[in-house]
C-alpha cells in the first residue's frame, strides 16, 4: 500500500549553523538513498524554500494568486516521499526514522485505483 510522507521543515533549518545543517542534510541524503535502494521509497522530491511558493486560489472560474505557501511557515512542507509498505505500522516506522533533529511527518494513505 502506498503512503505519502509530507515532511515539514524543522526549526533546525532556521537556527542551525551551516555546518550543522550540512550534517543533517547529509544524513537525510543517506536515508533517501537507502530507502530508494530497497524499494521502500518509490518517489520523492525536496522542495525549494517556502518563500518561493505561489498559491493559486480557485473560485468558481476565477483565480487569484497568493505570494506565499499554503501552510504557515512553521508547518511548511520541505519535501515529500511516496513509500510502498504493507500497512500503517510499517509506514510509521519509516516516518519515525526520518533523521532530523525536529519537525513533523504527516503520513497519508494514497487513494488506490
Amino acid at each position: 500500500m502506498r503512503y505519502i510522507l509530507l515532511l515539514t521543515r524543522g526549526e533546525w533549518q532556521e537556527s542551525g549553523t551551516p555546518q550543522e545543517q550540512g550534517e543533517v542534510f547529509g544524513r537525510i541524503g543517506e536515508w533517501f538513498a537507502k530507502l530508494r535502494a530497497d524499494g521502500t521509497i518509490t518517489e520523492a522530491q525536496q522542495l525549494q524554500a517556502p518563500g518561493t511558493a505561489t498559491t493559486v486560489v480557485l473560485d468558481h472560474g476565477a483565480s487569484t494568486l497568493i505570494d506565499r505557501p499554503l501552510l504557515e511557515a512553521k508547518e511548511a512542507i520541505g519535501g515529500y516521499a511516496v513509500i510502498d509498505v504493507p500497512d500503517l505500522d510499517a509506514a510509521l516506522v519509516v516516518a519515525r526514522s526520518f533523521p532530523v533533529p525536529d519537525g513533523k511527518v504527516e503520513v497519508r494513505p494514497a487513494v488506490e485505483r
Partner: peptide, 14 residues
C-alpha cells in the same frame, strides 16, 4: 480501513 491500521497484536519490540 483507509489508512490500513493492521489487525494484529504488536511484536515484542513494539
Amino acid at each position: 480501513t483507509t489508512a490500513r491500521i493492521p489487525y494484529r497484536t504488536p511484536e515484542p519490540g513494539e
